[in-house]
């Protein structure tokens, strides 16, 4: 017997679907791989007619984009799947939502009518809650960071420690004060809330890199772990320093 892959009937993909989903609550602690497995199982439970790759170990055709780091919540994650029969995006969204655990929530599914979707995910809008940090403290740290041309930060990656500039990717950064309630803060007092728009660059600049940069330029050390959420992901609107909806072109067709 030879080492050829078993012959299968390969059913071609007829449709691409783009899924916008959120990672909320305690499931922000799921890693990207955890989500991959959960999605594949949900797709099977919902009988979504997935297209499979060929070869020794066929796998469903799923493309993931820019996953948030483990521990970060997100309102704006995207994944693209290929199916072998035409599906109704609204029904797919509903079926997946019913099937995925609460906290992995499907927001919208659209049929892909455009190419280069990944290229449209140019920037992210982040919300960073800093319990037990005052709004003034945060504001002065932000000024210091924005005043710098370059801030080198170091992060452990799977290829070891990497040092890179975190300032260049920041399009905008501002702070506000808020109240997260006594449960989240040690002092029961308020907190600073940062909002940042960052460009997707390589290596990626993540919210923890922003916090490292704030620590380096202004000694900002939050006493309580911050809570981070990605609010949006999509084309960068430089005029308004905001992030646009990446599905606009697909919906327009």
């Amino acid at each position: 017997m030879s080492r050829q892959a078993p012959v299968r009937d390969v059913v071609p993909a007829v449709q691409k679907l783009r899924i916008h989903y959120a990672k909320r609550g305690r499931l922000r602690f799921s890693s990207h791989r955890d989500f991959q497995r959960a999605l594949e199982r949900a797709l099977r439970r919902c009988q979504i007619p997935m297209a499979y790759s060929q070869g020794f170990s066929p796998h469903p055709k799923i493309s993931f984009a820019n996953a948030v780091p483990t521990g970060v919540a997100s309102e704006a994650e995207y994944v693209e799947i290929q199916v072998t029969a035409l599906c109704d995006p609204v029904k797919v969204a509903q079926a997946l939502n019913d099937s995925l655990p609460e906290g992995l929530d499907v927001v919208e599914v659209v049929e892909a009518h455009t190419a280069d979707f990944i290229d449209r995910l140019q920037a992210s809008l982040w919300r960073v809650e800093l319990p037990d940090v005052s709004a003034d403290q945060a504001a002065s740290a932000i000024s210091a960071l924005l005043a710098a041309d370059e801030v080198q930060v170091t992060r452990k990656t799977k290829n070891g420690l990497r040092t890179f500039d975190a300032r260049g990717a920041i399009v905008s950064l501002e702070s506000d004060s808020g109240d997260l309630g006594a449960e989240w803060t040690m002092s029961g007092s308020g907190c600073a809330i940062l909002k940042a728009v960052t460009r997707h660059v390589t290596p990626s600049v993540r919210p923890d890199d922003l916090l490292s940069a704030l620590r380096i330029v202004a000694d900002l050390e939050p006493p309580t772990p911050p809570r981070v959420t990605r609010l949006a992901q999509g084309p960068l609107n430089l005029e308004s320093a905001s992030v646009d909806d990446p599905f606009v072109d697909d919906r327009a067709v």
Binding site: Q47, A85, V92
Partner: peptide
């Protein structure tokens, strides 16, 4: 096996 509930149409 019931037909997939997500098909178009």
């Amino acid at each position: 096996i019931a037909p997939s509930p997500v098909l178009a149409g």
